[in-house]
């Protein structure tokens, strides 16, 4: 069945992802994607493997998809639930955005938070006033993202057996 949303997602799939991000739809549902963002170099997020889910509906690309971190995050614009506060996913959405541009925006948000509308007040305060403590808390999430990765790989191994 070809709808505008599905046609667009099939094209998004063909677009080469930018550096440091990867994404692909579930094998049985093109409307749900899993993505990984590698924390950008020279930032506290460096080398973290942060996992996200992207949920599209038939309104895409006229309406933005729902983007959510699955990994635990410590970031001024990410809620405890993993949902994130990013203007291009809300009022500044444009139908010309695609999966690659969404992930690029989220990636650059990591090191360039918007302090004026914090989703995590503690993270926002540390970011502003206690940089080293902020970095420390972020590094904890980076290490957790590696551990999660490892566990996942073990799960996969078990399943293969």
């Amino acid at each position: 069945m070809s709808t505008p949303a599905r046609r667009r997602l099939m094209r998004d799939l063909k677009v080469d992802p930018p550096d440091g991000v990867s994404a692909s739809p579930l094998t049985d549902n093109v409307m749900i994607w899993n993505a990984i963002i590698i924390g950008p170099a020279d930032t506290p997020f460096e080398d973290g493997t942060f996992r996200l889910s992207i949920n599209f509906d038939e309104q895409y690309p006229n309406k933005p998809p729902q983007v959510k971190f699955l990994s635990t995050m410590f970031h001024p614009n990410v809620y405890a639930s993993g949902e994130l506060c990013l203007d291009i996913l809300q009022n500044r959405w444009s139908p010309t955005f695609d999966v690659a541009s969404i992930l690029t925006s989220v990636q650059s948000l990591l090191n360039d938070p918007n302090i004026s509308s914090p989703a995590n007040v503690e993270a926002a305060n540390l970011y502003k006033d206690h940089t080293s403590q902020y970095a420390k808390r972020v590094r904890e999430t980076v290490e957790k993202s590696w551990a999660d990765d490892l566990m996942d790989n073990e799960d996969d191994d078990e399943m293969e057996e």
């Binding site: 046609r7 667009r8 690309p61 139908p95 010309t96």
Partner: peptide
């Protein structure tokens, strides 16, 4: 004409 323009938004 049909087939000459592919719209970036709707992919049609």
């Amino acid at each position: 004409n049909k087939g000459e323009f592919m719209c970036f938004i709707c992919c049609d």
